[in-house]
Computed example of a mutant assay.
Amino acid sequence: MTTVPAAPIPDPQPPEVAEVTTIACVGIGTIGGGWAAYFLSRGYRVQAWDPSPEAGDRVRALIDAAWPALTQLGLAEGADPHAISVHTDLAEALDGAQFVQESAPEVLEMKQQLLADIDAHAAPGVIIASSTSGYSMTEMAVDAASPERLVVGHPFNPPYLIPLVEVVGGEQTSPAAVAWVSAWYEHLGKSVITMDHEVPGFIANRLQEALWREALHMVDNGEATVEQIDRSITDGPGLRWPLQGPMLTFHLAGGPGGMAHMLDHFGPSLKSPWTRLEAPELTEELRGAVVAGCDDEADGRTVPELVAQRDQAIIAVRQVIEQLRRGSAA
């Protein structure tokens, strides 16, 4: 197959990242609303679009719930939780926007049409990023007239607290657009992985999905409960991962010999039949067991209560890690 060379971004060029003042959030569900809250906390004005008549109330509730956590982390000068307008007309929401974050549901045909519509209405030179968690930009940009300015900017829930964003372009995305988006997210205070190539599921989702499949198999086979699986991570390897991640963790497990010793000594066990990376069939029995297990573990706590506890835990971990990093850099 012949690859079409990536086109440069046509004139006019994107604004300097420091000159951006207004952002369009297209789709303001959980992810898009989380993005809106984060952008507001960084001092930007947000113009949001969503076809649902209830979208305005939903995003207002999300912003109000997220604002205490964002305040605890530190707001940018001039940050205003009310500097947002909600529109049902896409062209109206895009008018004057200097960056666009699309966060529509994960339906390929919807994404293709919506990105084409955004491309048709956004001002020339404005970069358009998609929050997709699974589709490649190559397959989403097929109907867009200017695919060179379409980039994946994949966040993690909640995007107002989790710093990671994975950035990758499609076959027709301009490298300059990828570089601009990466610089833009870094300017916002995000931790950016700029991928060299499109990879199905990106990086973090691939790793999450492997753990998720294994967990479902263990529940399905009666090998572990939902609560046991969660505790095995929160009180086990999860405590090591925030600062060093799984690869460096295994490097340390090798002792003075590091990763080389780890691979040489434990390499044969990689072929042990421990894992079942194929997803199990989602039967009614498995679905019921997982749902009941989560209800048991929640122990009467509502979703908003669990979200508040999650947010406080994320803030505490981030603050401790930042202190450790500052100390090591001193």
Rank of each mutant, 00 (worst) to 15 (best):
A7S: 02
E19K: 09
V20K: 05
Y38L: 10
F39A: 13
G43Y: 12
Y44V: 07
W49Q: 06
D50R: 04
A55T: 10
A55H: 09
D57V: 10
A61M: 05
I63K: 08
A66E: 04
L70N: 12
T71Y: 08
L73G: 12
I84A: 11
V86E: 08
E92I: 05
E92M: 10
L94G: 12
D95A: 15
S103M: 02
E106P: 10
E106C: 09
V107P: 02
E109P: 03
E109T: 14
K111F: 06
Q112S: 04
A123H: 08
P124N: 10
T132P: 04
M137C: 04
V142E: 02
R149N: 05
L150A: 01
V151N: 03
V152N: 06
F156A: 09
N157W: 01
N157M: 05
Y160F: 14
L161R: 07
P163G: 14
G169M: 12
G170F: 09
E186H: 11
G189W: 13
I193R: 05
T194Y: 00
D196K: 12
G201A: 04
I203P: 00
Q208P: 07
L211H: 06
E214N: 06
N221G: 04
A224P: 08
E227C: 03
R231C: 06
T234R: 10
D235K: 07
W241Y: 14
G245R: 13
G245W: 11
P246C: 05
M247C: 05
F250Q: 11
L252N: 07
L252A: 13
D264L: 09
G267E: 13
S272C: 10
P273W: 10
E281V: 12
L282Q: 11
L282W: 15
A289I: 01
G293A: 01
D299G: 00
G300R: 00
V303Y: 11
V303A: 02
E305K: 02
E305T: 03
V307K: 07
A308Y: 03
A313P: 01
Q319V: 02
L324F: 09
G327A: 13
